[in-house]
Design a protein around this nucleic acid. Sequence first.
RNA 1: UCCGGAGUAGCUCAGUGGUAGAGCAGGCGGCUGUUAACCGCCUGGUCGGGGGUUCGAACCCCUCCUCCGGAGCCA
Length: 465
Amino acid sequence: MKQRISQVLDGKVDVGSRVTIEGWVRTRRDSKAGLSFIAVHDGSCFEALQVVAPAELPEYVDVVQKITTGCAVRVTGVVVASQGKGQTVEVRGESVEVVGWVDDPESYPMQPKRHTMEYLREVAHLRPRTNVIGAVTRVRHTLAMAVHRFFHDRGFFWIHTPIITANDAEGAGQMFRVSTLDAANPPRTPTGAVDWNQDFFGKQAHLTVSGQLNVETYCLAMSQVYTFGPTFRAENSNTRRHLAEFWMIEPEIAFADLAADAQLAEDFLKSIFAAVLAERKDDLAFFEKFVDPGCQKRLAAMVESKFERMDYGDAVKVLAQSGKTFEFPVSWGMDLQAEHERFLTEEVVKGPIAVINYPKDIKAFYMRLNDDGKTVAAMDVLAPGIGEIIGGSQREERLEVLDARLDEMKLPKADYGWYRDLRRFGSVPHAGFGLGFERAIQYATGVENIRDVIPFPRAPRQAEF
RNA sequence: UCCGGAGUAGCUCAGUGGUAGAGCAGGCGGCUGUUAACCGCCUGGUCGGGGGUUCGAACCCCUCCUCCGGAGCCA
């Protein structure tokens, strides 16, 4: 019977039963005692299965002894207790078939040894066969499923917000243009400007930088909703924390204020990381050993912790009085820098913290103005080792206040017609937040560069594969 | 985009002015219920590209490209 390797190694298949497994070869070791050991993985779990191929097999010389790293194989044999030390069970092969050969072993880029992450990025089509990318892939999947489960269990609806947008108003960063016009020779208006009227959508269009504005519309109908999909930023950011294409999770809750939003963020983070701890012990053990010693402890601590809440004003005071010298001196009104956020979460609180009520001048137009008239109901959730992991806010539900904010920031009201309508027809207090999915994977695994937690990273000057 | 670091064999790296090395991978052989095994031999490089200094450059200078880290922007 055909089995995934995880089933065999987890003891879900009885010793003595005959199985067929299919996968790719990590290593082959021959023994002159008349055996070959073939480590086979199929992605179902971290460990590879050891196949013992005895020399008596008719295909031993022509097939088994020619197997190299990377070959795709189908093996039928009996599950037996292992005589060796590295594993409890193994499969004694009765038939070993190579489904796909590595036609030139010397040129196969994946060697049975440690490669740098930079090198693996150059062979992104084959890197999922490595331990580290395989483990990342399983953790990524587990987190994605945990995200959906968390929201589904609480009655949220998953809203598929558009990827192409003609909103000129999302305002979250530089956008990628979507156009079918001939870039070398676009149609022109009489004044010589590009005539976007003749473009596919009859106006300028871009890839979305956030689904928030769209999802707010469904929030004010379905009460609890979220988006989870690809997002794009055309910023020239060259860091280990930024991608041009990444996945973002943005829940939005109606009849809710900032406190409810912060509570949701806390419950959410704990829930998805608890899922990884429970479901991917094998992969976490690997990250612990080879990537980030302490990552399991950090995750467990996050799941057990109570998130602190701290007012922005208090955070500024704490930083100013800390006696620590910062590259950017702290004063009320400035945005907190990475060094400040790290200090707060790693030195002051020593755990996750939600900083709330930021000065309105450093935050977006849609964030709800507080009664003091100078701060908005915004929050950043900071976590040790990563800094800001979530940004969110209560949204401005009062039309006149929203309009005043638009005017203040010199944003044209005409561009916000449908968004303003939400404040005209049955408006309610509502709130939400955004989480960069890849950042969550980085946090869970300790993988340093964000390009290694997404299958095919897109970044400035990088769109291979 | 700014600051710093790096680019030498398929991979990981050593080599700071005198003509290129190791480990791993690959090939051949040996050995072993092996564990990214171990032992021996062999194969393998226009030293990122271009220009300059010098009798002579992997090494010094200029420039471009690429990658990494930090910052900014942010998620």
